[in-house]
Amino acid sequence: MIKMKIGDWVILLFSLFLIPMSWSMTKQQPGETTAVKITVADTSPATYSIMENHQIKVTGELGDSIIEIHDGKVRFIHSPCSGKVCILSGWHQQSGDHIACLPNKVGVSLLSQEDRFDGINF
């Protein structure tokens, strides 16, 4: 068996405590969404604050889509597309998330203060 000194036990106990703590800390940390960017095909995107509750009607390729912003969350509530994937995907609040309705060419992105990159690859 390995010889364990008092310091080893202290460090081992500390790390056993650290494992669940690190898991729970990152769980409670949803990216802070500050704004919602709505892009409709071939037009410049419009940005809305996530804090204000409202419904936004945009006209896409097929017709009108209605997007709802409520209590810091966003969802599609109406779409003229056939699949309704955008509506079924439900509420979104994590920054970096995207909801897209491809048939109607409407995209919704959740933005945070600092998002210069999604990632860098070398």
Binding site: K3, M4, I11, L18
Partner: peptide, 30 residues
Amino acid sequence: VGLVGVSVLSSISHVMAQLFVAWWLFIPHP
């Protein structure tokens, strides 16, 4: 301290330093 303590603690600091540098230099995204 013996091997266990030194190994585990240095491993934790290794990981944390790498995470910090990765966030600082390469992927500045939460």
